[in-house]
Nucleic acid binder design. Structure first.
Lengths: 210, 210
DNA sequence: TCAACAATGTTGACATTGGAAACAATATGG
DNA sequence: CCATATTGTTTCCAATGTCAACATTGTTGA
């Protein structure tokens, strides 16, 4: 029963549009995101968004950028909790990634939905993405310097780790946890631990030294 | 200088539409795929596609399904070349995955663009996807039975391997080979070898037994 | 053979969308 | 208190997905 008046000016339309965009993505996937529907939900006319975003692409870019910032924060938060041990922090960055995906599925789905423009047209988006990737790189470098991770090209290792965790996160968000995975994946911390255990130990059985 | 007549019936419009769809995806990404433009390129009117597909979603599903079949074939081809050694075949499946991505970037991009409907509405698409995944699962089971891969939940291992290779493949297709990765990634067989080496050996340095 | 009939294409319409232009209401600073 | 920039609104347009009605062609059985 608050004010039912509609002031001509919205107040914070930009944030409202991002919020609406996220709702739409969660409801109907990336395809469900529509400028006009977002405007409708924000209670403004269909052309109002153009005062805050250059177009649909720009709105998507803004949402994705916010997503990357949240993700970086989530990763760093878990790392803080983990303390100062490099290996523990490395693991925690993965946990943060998964936690972000679970807690912000709308962001996550949009961020990696081929609609997000990774042009040079959105440098702040690119920067936010690079920062997220940088958190992982930082963890890896620290592990290598501490001697707990084998040497090797940092970018290559980072890519493989990212893929690893991203695969898990996608499973969570899409909710397709096939059979046996569902069990361990019920708790993403456990899943991350299993994944890390696997990464740590290696997949193949070492050839038996005669 | 062949026949320039336009027979009322196209001959194989279905295939022509899929071909056009792939062109559009390669040119302008998944967003560039338009039913009307595909029809235009196939030389038919804008509503003709509806005689072969229930709608845009169905066309996308058909392209994706074809993609999964090609991917499965590519994986199995490499496995055949690799011979009968389980570990070699496991590695070859990854090479086949990468080769498919490199040789069919349009298919690859569409297959994993959030536009492909993974509903129950397209059972043959789901089956094709499951078959691709099954090739990997088969490789893993064989490795485990041969004792060259550690025991563990097959689906979980398969997911992690898939993520691994998929991350590499995405890099190839998107062409964003950042810095040092570009070197090794120029040849996807080498990249795959590096990845497998990493998977085999494990990432972390084992704790030194005092 | 040839007249139904099924397959395949075409035309024309409609609602929705992204976008641009012109106009209206509000805030804000001199 | 008024000039001006912000922010929204209305109105328009082209492109798209989709549907219904109609046209053309291939096929098939009496």
């Amino acid at each position: 029963m608050a004010d039912e008046k509609k002031p001509y000016h919205h107040g914070d339309l930009r944030a409202a549009l991002i919020h609406a965009a996220l709702e739409l993505v969660q409801e109907n996937g990336a395809r469900g995101l529509t400028l006009r529907e977002a405007a409708r939900r924000a209670g403004v006319s269909h052309a109002a968004p153009y005062r805050h975003f250059d177009g649909k692409e720009a709105l998507i870019a803004a949402v994705a950028e916010e997503g990357f910032r949240l993700m970086s924060r989530s990763m760093r938060d878990e790392m803080s909790i983990a303390g100062s041990d490099p290996a523990a922090r490395f693991n925690a960055s993965g946990v943060g990634y998964l936690r972000f995906a679970v807690e912000h599925p709308g962001h996550f789905r949009l961020m990696f939905s081929s609609d997000v423009p990774m042009d040079d047209k959105y440098p702040s988006l690119a920067a936010a993405g690079a920062d997220s990737f940088g958190v992982l790189v930082e963890c890896i470098v620290n592990c290598q310097q501490a001697g707990v991770m084998r040497a090797g090209d940092v970018m290559e290792i980072a890519l493989l780790c990212w893929s690893q965790v991203h695969g898990l996160a996608t499973l969570y968000v899409e909710g397709q946890l096939p059979g046996p995975i569902g069990g361990v994946a019920g708790d993403y911390r456990k899943a991350m631990a299993a994944s890390q255990f696997w990464m740590a130990g290696g997949l193949m059985v070492p050839p038996r030294d005669k």
